[in-house]
Design a binder for these strands. Structure first.
Length: 212
DNA sequence: CCCGTGATTTAT
DNA sequence: TAAATCACGGGG
């Protein structure tokens, strides 16, 4: 098995990082075994101006503190009383910008993933959602704040020398946001003043492994 | 369609 | 202190 270089260019803006992450491999080590999948769906969260971000308005709490770490760290949070979600922090320290990892195409350690998710019946059930992939890969709060560029437990591997061409990536609005966000605001992204409608979700075109 | 589940956030 | 919310998932 050849070794692949790590993806470490996470200090760019979250839209750039999001596009570059699609097609790369997320690797988790459990008891010496590799569990991994190709990243097929991500969402960018743009910091204090982004009403949908945990750091909207510059809010700083115990929960979201890791989102203010320098790009390359993990921000893991617990929600709905039972699910964990994994973000790759981007940008510089204190920016509060990140990319949510929403879905993977499972590749290595599929048997272990099925053991971690007893309800899953098919390969597509393992990692087709942000809470599913953290369950499959045993990602929880103990990984919050780790440095993905140096960790021996969780990291991103480059599997292509170059990023995917835009023609292979689809852009849509983000999933699961409160419809109350469907309003205009002072901040804007790419001409969008409506953060609910902003095209900040990136999926691998024609992938069978995206969420929903 | 609805519900579980509990930390966090917001309202009183 | 109480109520509402939540970057979700599973079952009808």
């Amino acid at each position: 098995m050849p070794t692949f270089p790590r993806f470490t260019a996470m200090d760019a803006d979250p839209v750039t990082v999001a596009q570059r992450l699609v097609g790369q491999r997320l690797v988790r080590i459990i008891e010496g075994q590799r569990l991994s999948g190709i990243i097929v769906e991500v969402e960018a969260y743009l910091g204090s101006e982004d009403l949908a971000a945990h750091t909207a308005g510059g809010r700083r709490t115990v929960r979201n503190e890791a989102m203010y770490l320098p790009g390359g760290h993990a921000y893991v949070y617990f929600t709905y009383g039972m699910h964990h979600c994994l973000n790759v922090v981007c940008g510089q320290r204190d920016e509060g910008v990140a990319v949510l990892i929403r879905a993977l195409e499972p590749s290595e350690g599929v048997d272990a993933m099925f053991r971690n998710r007893p309800r899953a019946r098919h390969l597509v059930d393992l990692c087709s959602g942000p809470g599913k992939l953290t369950q499959s890969l045993q990602i929880d709060l103990h990984l919050n704040g780790i440095d993905l560029r140096s960790s021996d437990q969780l990291w991103v591997e480059r599997r292509r020398k170059n990023i995917l061409p835009p023609s292979q990536i689809e852009r849509t609005r983000r999933i699961g946001l409160n419809s109350q966000l469907n309003v205009d605001s002072l901040g804007n992204f790419d001409g969008f003043t409506n953060w609910w409608a902003a095209p900040l979700r990136f999926t691998l075109k024609n992938s069978q492994f995206i969420s929903r």
